[in-house]
C-alpha cells in the first residue's frame, strides 16, 4: 500500500512536499529561536534585500521566513485536529444513520442536509466570532462545517456493507449491534473515507488561512493567513508579504491533494488502467 503510493509520481512528490512542511514546523524553534513576533529589521524590506532575511520583513519589521516556519505549525495542527474531529463526528453520524436506516436515518440525514445548506465558510465565520477567535474555537468551527460529507460517504458505504452476507450472519449468531458496527461494518467501509481525509486536511488549512486572512485568526498565534492579512493593506507595493505565505498554503494543499490522489489510486488499482 505505502509502496504503491510512493511509486506513483504524484504520491512521491506529494509526500516529499509534505515532509518538507513538517520539517519546517519541527525546526522552527531551532532556526528562529526568537519566535515569529520578534522585530528583526526595518519594516517592508524586500526579499534578499539584506542577507539573512531571505523573504524580507513585514509591515512591523518581523522576519517573514520565521513567520512562515511558525505558521506551518498552526496550519498542520489545525488541519489535522479539525479533520480528526470532523471524521469522528461524520463517521459516527453516518454509520448510525446507515446501519439503523428508517426514522433515525431520515432525521440524521435532514440535519446533515441543513448543515450542507448553510455556506460553510460563512458559518465558520459566525461560529468563530460568537465563540471568540482562538485556535481551539477555529478547530471547532472547521470541524462543525466539514463533517457532513464524511457522514454521507460513511452512510453510503455502511448501507452497502450492511447487506453483505458476513454482516447478516453476525446478526443471525446474535452479535450485539454496536459490536457489529465496530468490528464488521466500519472496518469494511472506511477506505473511501480515508481518501477523503487528505482532502479534508487541505480544506481545513484553506479555511484556517481564510479566517486569519479576514482577521478572525487567533491573535496570539502566527499563521500563514495572519501574515497575508498583515500584508493586504500594502498589496500595491510590497505584495510579497501576501504572496510568499500564500505560496506555502498552495504548496501544502497541492501536496495533500497529490497524496490523496495517490492513495485513491493505490486503493482502487483498477481505475489506473484507464
Amino acid at each position: 500500500m505505502l509502496r504503491r503510493v510512493l511509486l506513483s509520481p504524484a504520491g512521491f512528490v506529494g509526500l516529499l512536499l509534505l515532509l518538507m512542511i513538517v520539517g519546517m514546523a519541527l525546526s522552527a524553534g531551532y532556526f528562529f529561536p526568537k519566535g515569529p513576533w520578534a522585530l528583526v529589521a526595518r519594516p517592508y524590506m524586500w526579499p534578499g534585500q539584506r542577507p539573512g532575511l531571505l523573504f524580507g520583513t513585514d509591515s512591523l519589521g518581523r522576519d517573514i521566513l520565521a513567520a512562515i516556519f511558525y505558521g506551518s505549525r498552526v496550519s498542520l495542527i489545525v488541519g489535522l485536529v479539525a479533520t480528526v474531529c470532523a471524521l469522528a463526528v461524520g463517521i459516527t453520524v453516518g454509520s448510525i444513520a446507515g446501519y439503523f436506516g428508517r426514522g433515525v436515518d431520515a432525521v440524521l440525514m435532514r440535519i446533515t442536509d441543513a448543515f450542507q445548506t448553510i455556506p460553510g465558510f460563512l458559518f465558520a465565520i459566525v461560529l468563530v466570532s460568537i465563540l471568540s477567535p482562538s485556535v481551539t474555537n477555529i478547530v471547532i468551527a472547521i470541524a462543525v462545517v466539514s463533517w457532513p460529507p464524511v457522514a454521507r460517504l460513511t452512510r453510503a458505504e455502511v448501507l452497502r456493507v450492511r447487506e453483505t452476507e458476513y454482516v447478516q450472519s453476525c446478526k443471525i449468531i446474535g452479535m450485539s449491534t454496536p459490536r457489529i458496527i465496530l468490528t464488521q461494518v466500519l472496518p469494511n467501509s472506511l477506505s473511501p473515507v480515508i481518501v477523503v481525509a487528505a482532502v479534508l486536511v487541505a480544506t481545513a488549512i484553506i479555511t484556517e488561512a481564510g479566517l486569519s486572512f479576514l482577521g478572525l485568526g487567533d491573535p496570539n498565534v502566527m499563521s500563514w493567513g495572519t501574515l497575508i492579512n498583515v500584508g493586504r493593506p500594502s498589496i500595491r507595493s510590497t505584495w510579497f508579504i501576501c504572496v510568499l505565505p500564500g505560496l506555502f498554503v498552495v504548496m501544502t494543499v497541492l501536496a495533500l491533494n497529490l497524496l490523496g490522489d495517490a492513495i485513491n489510486d493505490a486503493l482502487n488499482p483498477h481505475f489506473r488502467k484507464r
Binding site: 488561512a209 497575508i228 500564500g246 494543499v253 491533494n257
Partner: peptide, 8 residues
Amino acid sequence: FYATPVFM
C-alpha cells in the same frame, strides 16, 4: 488551480 484558495 485546485490547490489555490479563493483569496490567493
